[in-house]
């Protein structure tokens, strides 16, 4: 004990104590940083089955916390955070927490779209044609907004409202032709379903969707103008065939 004390005092007197302290800190700080890093790294990859990736978007009109993330209609995860970035110009970064079980590639795109005409938004991930490196935790991908689709949807909605109004009018006009009206309504519902299925299935080609939407809208325009011009003929022409 006595010699130990002496030794300690001797060392402190020589400045070795101070030196030991400094060298200890110098070596320990990086060692702790590295150990923590390894623990976090190992723990993170072992403990979680999800990863966070970022999507850069220009506006968040449809994107909010909880928006589902899908690939080919299969739900992978959800948007957990959306925050604005002010430089270089105002834009937004959405954090997507998605499962690791599906292979995604670095160059994949995130299309922000509506999963049905009712207007529920969804982030649809799409793998590129050419497969490169895997998408990893923390990667940033570009968000593509299909704003035009939304416009068309609005148009279709307006149109449908109009059609419904006309149909209601005609229900009052002709009680007998109710069955035919029902047929029209159901055929309209079928066409809406078609639109939906087009939206869901033909994601590969947005232009096609837009084209078919336009076509549908045109047809509906024609139908409605025909009904306006000659409602009776229109209603009963189907019966003849």
């Amino acid at each position: 004990m006595n010699t130990d004390m002496k030794r300690m005092i001797g060392r402190v007197r020589e400045g070795l104590g101070r030196l030991e302290y400094r060298v200890g800190l110098f070596v320990l700080i990086p060692a702790v940083v590295v150990v923590l890093f390894i623990l976090v790294k190992l723990g993170y990859s072992l403990a979680t089955s999800t990863m966070d990736i970022y999507v850069k978007v220009n506006s968040i009109s449809s994107l909010k916390k909880g928006t589902p993330v899908q690939i080919k209609g299969y739900q992978l995860g959800r948007v957990v955070d959306v925050r604005p970035l002010f430089k270089p110009a105002l834009h937004f970064i959405a954090t997507l927490r998605i499962g690791k079980d599906i292979e995604l590639y670095e160059d994949c795109a995130a299309v922000i779209t509506n999963q049905n005409v009712i207007g529920d938004p969804v982030v649809e991930l799409r793998n590129p044609e050419k497969k490169g490196a895997f998408l990893r935790e923390g990667d940033v991908i570009e968000g593509i907004e299909s704003g035009s689709i939304e416009d068309i949807m609005t148009k279709v909605n307006t149109l449908l409202t109009e059609v419904t109004a006309i149909v209601t009018l005609y229900r009052e006009v002709s009680q007998e032709s109710r069955g035919d009206i029902r047929r029209l309504v159901s055929s309209l519902a079928g066409s809406i379903q078609n639109i939906n299925s087009i939206l869901q299935n033909s994601q590969k080609d947005i232009i096609d969707i837009i084209g078919s939407m336009r076509k549908t809208a045109r047809t509906l325009d024609e139908v409605s103008s025909e009904i306006k011009r000659n409602p009776m003929k229109f209603l009963f022409s189907g019966k003849k065939e």
Partner: peptide, 18 residues
């Protein structure tokens, strides 16, 4: 360019592999 600190470090942590 503004990058939130936590995002920057998360990004860095992801890029810096074992």
């Amino acid at each position: 360019i503004y990058i939130p600190l936590d995002m920057f470090f998360q990004n860095l942590g992801t890029a810096f592999s074992l």
